[in-house]
Structures are given as C-alpha cells and as structure tokens.
Simulated assay, not measured.
Amino acid sequence: MDRIPILKMGQVLLVTIQVDMHDRLAIALEEDLSAKIVSARAKGVLIDISALEIVDSFIGRMLDNIAAVSRMLDADTVVVGMRPAVAITLVELGLSLTGVKTALNVERGIDLIQRRLRESGDDNVDVREE
C-alpha cells in the first residue's frame, strides 16, 4: 500500500500530500503521523494540501481527526496550500476543521508554528535548522 512521506524539520513534521487521497491512504497517514509525533517528540504538524484538487467528507473528517490526535499528543496542526474550491467544499459539507490552523503556504505555516512554540516558552523553536 502507498504511504505519504512524513519529513522531520526540527520539532515540526512536514506532510506533503501530492496524490489523490483515498480512504485507506488517509487512515494510514493518521496512524503513521500519530506514531511519528510520539517518536520524534514533534510539537507541530504541517500538512501541505496544495496538490489536492478535491476533498470529500471522509478526507475532511480525517484532517480533523489528525488535528485532534496531534493536539492530544501536544502538537499543533497547520494545513497549508488549501485551494479555494477545497475550502468551499469543506464549508458546504459543514466541516469546520476545529483545531486546525490554516496558512496560505508552507513558509507562513512554519512561521505560525514557530510563534506558537515561542508563546509556549519552548527554547528550541527554529524548525529550519537540524
């Protein structure tokens, strides 16, 4: 089965979804990401969905679940690169993605996570180094 790569950048895990998500792949991502948050002691998760052209209700719920699990494991989730059509679809489906922060691009997403880490008093906040 295919897997979506999870890259570690300092205290942040970067997930770039460049394939059409199907249900099994989304479930595998949730499981892989949860395990990686714990093993890497990550404080942030950045999910780049700029390559996704469509999102259905299951994928929307999976993004919401990933954010909830990440929060429980002490990591913030930021989704970047959301296309307008995807945002409209999520709203039309009634999915607010509670707890998911959004940013226009990866750079802004990393800045958002760094700010959150600084606010929480974490001394090692530079995700661009490692």
Rank of each mutant, 00 (worst) to 15 (best):
Pro5His: 06
Thr89Ile: 06
Val127Pro: 01
Lys8Ala: 15
Thr102Ala: 03
Ser39Leu: 12
Leu33Lys: 09
Ala67Ser: 14
Ser96Pro: 01
Pro5Gln: 04
Ile17Phe: 01
Gln11His: 13
Ile49Gln: 00
Lys101His: 11
Leu13Val: 11
Val80Arg: 03
Ala35Arg: 14
Leu29Asn: 04
Ala35Ile: 05
Ile37Gln: 10
Phe58Leu: 15
Thr98Cys: 03
Gly99Tyr: 01
Asp2Trp: 07
Glu92Met: 11
Thr89Cys: 10
Leu46Arg: 03
Glu129Cys: 08
Pro5Gly: 00
Gly94Ala: 12
Thr102Gln: 00
Leu104Glu: 10
Gly81His: 02
Arg41Lys: 15
Ser34Cys: 06
Ser96Gln: 13
Thr102Ile: 06
Ala28Thr: 13
Leu95Ala: 10
Asp20Thr: 06
Arg116Leu: 11
Arg128Tyr: 08
Asp23Pro: 07
Asp122Thr: 13
Ile47Ala: 05
Leu104Asn: 07
Ala68Asp: 09
Gly99His: 00
Met9His: 08
Ala35Phe: 02
Ile113Tyr: 04
Glu31Ala: 14
Arg116Asp: 03
Leu46Trp: 03
Leu33Gly: 09
Val106Asn: 09
Ala68Gln: 13
Leu52Gln: 02
Ser50Gln: 01
Val100His: 00
Arg108Ala: 10
Leu46Phe: 03
Leu46Gly: 05
Glu107Cys: 08
Ile4Pro: 11
Arg41Ser: 14
Met21Leu: 15
Val15Asp: 07
Ser120Gln: 14
Ser39Phe: 10
Asp123Ala: 15
Ile37Val: 13
Asp123Arg: 12
Lys43Gly: 13
Val91Lys: 10
Ile17Trp: 04
Arg24Tyr: 11
Met21Phe: 00
Val78His: 02
Ala75Tyr: 06
Ala75Cys: 06
Leu63Asp: 06
Arg128Thr: 07
Lys101Thr: 10
Val127His: 04
Arg118Ile: 13
Val69Gln: 02
Asp20Asn: 10
Val15Ser: 11
Leu46Asp: 02
Val55His: 05
Gln18Thr: 07
Leu33His: 08
Ala26Val: 11
Val55Gly: 01
Asp20Gln: 08
Asn65Lys: 14
Asp126Leu: 01
Pro84Lys: 01
Glu107Trp: 04
Glu129Leu: 14
Glu30His: 12
Ala85Cys: 01
Asp32Arg: 06
Arg71Ile: 00
Ala26Tyr: 04
Arg83Asp: 02
